[in-house]
Write a protein that binds this DNA or RNA. Structure first.
Lengths: 194, 194
DNA sequence: TGACTGACAGATATTGACATCTGTCAGTTG
DNA sequence: CAACTGACAGATGTCAATATCTGTCAGTCA
């Protein structure tokens, strides 16, 4: 054979197959066929089909986290960065739902299965939020904190669930959703800066 | 016959039948049998099975709204009443989910079907919130309002979705949920009183 | 010798025949 | 004559037979 099969190749191909057939129809045999190998080979690299789906989704979610990282690492007022981060998260999720419906459906089903990858994604995002909030505390802008930045981050994340939790995706195209987002965002911001 | 069949009797019996068989198994024939009439009679009062389920759920949801009304109508600081209202809503929903799982399942499925009854329930609850918020504005406590009480009420309702939206019910027994609720509640309260 | 194959067993999904349910309405009943 | 019945058509749900898929592993190949 030309080259040994890498996990990376498998993940890339699985992502394509999921995008083409959707999570309900895509099989491990489909992935193997697209790679030109037998499905037994795929199982040498990923123990189960669930592990494969989860790894693909993890990669896909990590792309969003990486994108938001620039807002976290950036210099500037925490208040402004928090708004950009929340807006960025909402925009990213909306685009994922609209542009990549099959992978979004995979992600949504993973949420219902308490997947490790989704838990990690939430932890990553809450961690980013905590860093911005901690910066705001250091800058003297976020004076309303009655608890640590981790708790505050969790509260902010949960209060904005409607704008990033995939179970609300069907409502993200509703006309009033942008006004709703602005209202919740402002309420939370005032809560932090009070 | 003894008495003419009233919509009230049908609703009461349907509620019992739903509670006994669950929304998936309960049929209109079951309801008719429990009433001692033919199912055609039930259809004389409710155009469809969906309308019947919706009417039962409306009654069931209205009981919560009525209970919360006492907090809204009560004299006292709006800040305190808002906390009691939010706590009361969370407590009520949790009890409905735990004590009345079949009717809660009926309610949950209605949410996914964009039912009129659920829309009305949300409107009622947001209306109650708006009244408390308006009181707080009049009392001079809620000084952080950048918009009208209706918009603020909607924002508060959406920010606390995790603690009343039935799609989150499976997480309401998680140990950390009370701490999470307290954190979100405090964040929002500071946002209003800032 | 280690990456890969492909036949296999058990699990899961699909299909289609059958049963039940929903909603209607002409006819019955008090 | 207004409330109700029950037979009916079409829609929906159930179930068992069948097909496909997942995950394993002894064996092949370079």
């Amino acid at each position: 054979m030309a080259e040994a099969l890498t996990p990376e190749q498998i993940l890339r191909t699985t992502e394509e197959v999921l995008r083409r057939y959707g999570p309900a129809k895509a099989t491990v045999v489909d992935v193997a066929r697209a790679l030109g190998v037998s499905h037994g080979t795929v199982y040498r690299h990923f123990r189960t089909k669930a592990a494969l789906r989860e790894a693909v989704t993890k990669r896909w979610l990590d792309r969003t986290t990486e994108q938001l990282e620039s807002v976290v690492a950036r210099q500037g007022p925490a208040e402004e960065r928090l708004v950009d981060w929340l807006t960025g998260l909402f925009t990213a999720k909306r685009h994922k739902a609209g542009d990549d419906p099959e992978l979004f459906a995979t992600y949504t089903s993973l949420v219902g299965e308490h997947s490790e990858a989704v838990d990690q994604h939430v932890t990553d995002l809450e961690g980013q939020l905590a860093r911005i909030i901690e910066d705001g505390r250091a800058q003297g802008t976020f004076t309303g904190l009655t608890s640590g930045p981790d708790t505050a981050a969790r509260a902010v994340f949960q209060a904005t669930a409607r704008f990033h939790d995939p179970s609300y995706a069907p409502q993200w195209s509703h006309p009033s959703v942008d006004a709703d987002f602005a209202a919740v965002r402002d309420l939370i911001l005032r809560g932090l800066t009070s």
